[in-house]
Nucleic acid binder design. Structure first.
Lengths: 140, 140
DNA sequence: GACAAATGATACAAGTATGGTATCATTTCT
DNA sequence: AGAAATGATACCATACTTGTATCATTTGTC
């Protein structure tokens, strides 16, 4: 059970790298060379982040990707939700089918509490905070 | 990203049902009928729990499964670890390969903190607590 | 002892998610 | 015109989840 999968991890690395450069617009070629991730997969990830308004893209020669927001405004939760789907730890596996009293389910309540905590913690992590602390080139 | 998968869920239902019966030994046939889960899959799950010492089994006519521990001593973490593997939210995806300073990685530290909280919360959940609260027949 | 009822062991398979590749179209700079 | 970049999209390999199927073994009852 992983909180963060590889596409989110790659996204963090890429965004983190971009945020540390003088030039705003960074090409996929440069990213691939610097953060060592598979090129076609990274392109797919960056295109998704572009559509979601986290990156802006520039086509043509000299083009590439730039941050659409300040690094301190890009939250880890945004990346996880965009690339892995909604953060939802408490999905009841039997829905309305059998469960006679879903509202008072003890397990569900417990997991909802856990989920709220996890989300609040992840929200406190931004690209800015990751770039400034710990390992700068690879956020493992 | 799910904290609890279906096999753990089935295990919870089965153990919870067994804990509420007068008779100690319950057959798979009875469980299948009462908690409505696929028979061969449930058998596989119960066999695993038997090997792990959470259940004891009795072969032959009139046989079945009984709890090997008191309901308040069977923790949700035991079931998750047995059926889904170690609870490990913080797996670094790049290991030693590239990361220059894994010890000080800000993201890793954050996720370790979250993991400790999640595990401590799950440890507070037992078969006993699930049987006594909320929906009794189906722990959704 | 025969038979039925139960679990033990194990191999197989469908469905889904993750991680990744390949290709062609489009835009833009020079 | 041509090169360099992204956009869109189809495809593929692998692993994990969620099962199914089958035969062997044990045990209680007649």
């Amino acid at each position: 059970m992983r909180l963060i999968t590889r596409n989110t991890d790659y996204a963090v690395r890429a965004l983190s790298y971009i945020s540390r450069q003088e030039e705003k617009v960074i090409s996929v070629s440069e990213l691939v060379e610097k953060i060592k991730v598979p090129r076609p997969f990274l392109r797919k990830i960056l295109q998704i982040l572009n559509k979601k308004g986290i990156l802006v893209s520039y086509k043509g020669q000299g083009g590439g990707f730039a941050l659409a927001k300040k690094p301190q405004e890009i939250f880890l939760t945004d990346l996880i939700e965009t690339l892995q789907g909604e953060i939802k730890l408490n999905e009841c596996l039997f829905k309305k089918m059998f469960c006679p009293d879903i509202k008072n389910c003890g397990l569900k309540k417990k997991i909802e509490t856990i989920e709220r905590y996890v989300v609040s913690q992840l929200k406190s992590i931004t690209i800015a905070s990751l770039s400034n602390n710990g390992c700068k080139t690879h956020n493992c």
